[in-house]
């Protein structure tokens, strides 16, 4: 059984790697797949807060927006390389995360939810109204695509050529997105099993007990917020250079809600679940976008389904629909046992 699941996993991975090279590849499908991967990164980033720490972040998209606009503006004004922009955007996102998180993380969780929500709305207002910086609702068009410039290597080898590869079409972005997803995934898996991840888990299960055991609640929560917002900003930086256009509309509350729904669907705190949640909801969204207008309904009403999914999951499957997948992400026997005992206590 386990062997079969593993083979299926590798088969899927091989198919995903090979798809863009196949003669039957489709630009639209590729585009949707890249979109799914962007949301995978977002879902994994958001998952840290409600999933690992039990803190509801309703303003995640604000940091996604900060990352995207940081990248977009640095590209348009300074023509900076993408590889330099990514760390800058991540740092900028995490900086805002710490600035917002430090004063609010001491408060009750509900207040945290509301403050993050208010913050992301302020970000959208800022992006819409500070026209001198962001061009407001007109958005920023013509952001240069990602380029990989290894001319220095050529110079080093004594070859007088310009080794520069510009990302055109969906395919290079597809592979870059895969690298990004893999990177975040590995980091998340390692973090979950680390001292940091255990501290977050302890905070989620019982803050008072965690504090009594010497876990610095505040410090670990701020770290969680910084990591989460940093990942959100990274996805934003990718988005800016991939879509080559940014506008404030892309960062409205709906996006936060969608990402939260992915995390909830996959199971809070479940890294694999976040990936599957992204696939399902983006695919569902694309289908509904086509089906709903045919029924004479505005395409936005697809959020009805998302809202319903969230309510039903919380009511009937609070651990998400893929609990078996959740088991397999954890490596540490200690944590596995602990979780099993906690779950047993909760159901009793």
């Amino acid at each position: 059984m386990r062997g079969a699941a593993n083979s299926l996993k590798y088969l899927l991975l091989a198919a995903a790697l090979a798809y863009p090279l196949m003669p039957f590849r489709d630009v639209y499908v590729l585009h949707v797949l890249v979109l799914i991967m962007v949301y995978m990164v977002l879902a994994m980033g958001l998952n840290i807060l409600p999933g690992f720490c039990g803190l509801l972040d309703l303003g995640f998209v604000g940091f996604y927006g900060i990352g995207a606009y940081t990248a977009g503006l640095l590209t348009v004004h300074y023509n900076m390389s993408f590889w330099l922009i990514v760390p800058l955007a991540v740092i900028n996102g995490a900086l805002f995360g710490v600035l917002l998180g430090a004063p609010t993380l001491r408060l009750v969780g509900d207040y945290f939810a509301i403050v993050t929500f208010g913050f992301s709305e302020l970000v959208v207002l800022f992006l819409t109204n500070e026209i001198w910086l962001t061009r407001g609702p007109l958005g920023i068009p013509g952001i240069a695509p990602i380029a990989l410039d290894v001319t220095w290597l050529a110079t080093l080898l004594g070859i007088d050529e310009r080794w520069r590869y510009v990302f055109r079409g969906e395919m290079p972005y597809y592979y870059l997105a895969m690298v990004m997803v893999a990177l975040v995934y590995v980091v998340m898996r390692r973090v979950e099993d680390s001292r940091l991840g255990r501290a977050w888990l302890a905070i989620r299960e019982d803050p008072m007990a965690a504090a009594s055991c010497g876990v610095n609640l505040f410090a670990y929560k701020v770290i969680a917020f910084a990591v989460s917002t940093g990942i959100g900003a990274m996805a934003g930086a990718f988005l800016a250079r991939w879509s080559q256009f940014l506008s404030p509309d892309m960062f409205k509350f709906w996006e936060s809600f969608l990402v939260l729904c992915m995390v909830v669907l996959g199971g809070l705190g479940n890294i694999n679940g976040a990936l599957i949640g992204s696939v399902i909801l983006i695919a569902l969204g694309e289908v509904l976008r086509v089906v709903l207008p045919k029924l004479g309904l505005p395409a936005e009403t697809r959020f009805l389904a998302y809202g319903l999914i969230m309510v039903l999951i919380m009511r009937f499957r609070p651990n998400g629909i893929f609990t078996q997948v959740a088991e397999s992400t954890m490596q540490s026997r200690l944590i596995k046992d602990l979780r099993a005992r906690l779950d047993a206590r909760r159901t009793a």
């Binding site: 409600p50 039990g54 509801l56 309703l58 969780g109 509900d110 939810a113 809600f257 939260l260 729904c261 909830v264 809070l268 309904l297 505005p298 936005e300 009403t301 959020f303 009805l304 998302y306 809202g307 319903l308 999914i309 969230m310 309510v311 919380m314 009511r315 609070p318």
Partner: peptide, 24 residues
Amino acid sequence: EAPRLAALITAIGMSIFLQNLAMI
């Protein structure tokens, strides 16, 4: 009796659900 996070997420879900129901 569930963790507070569950109720909060449900509240958000209901809000979105009702809003879109009205839209329909």
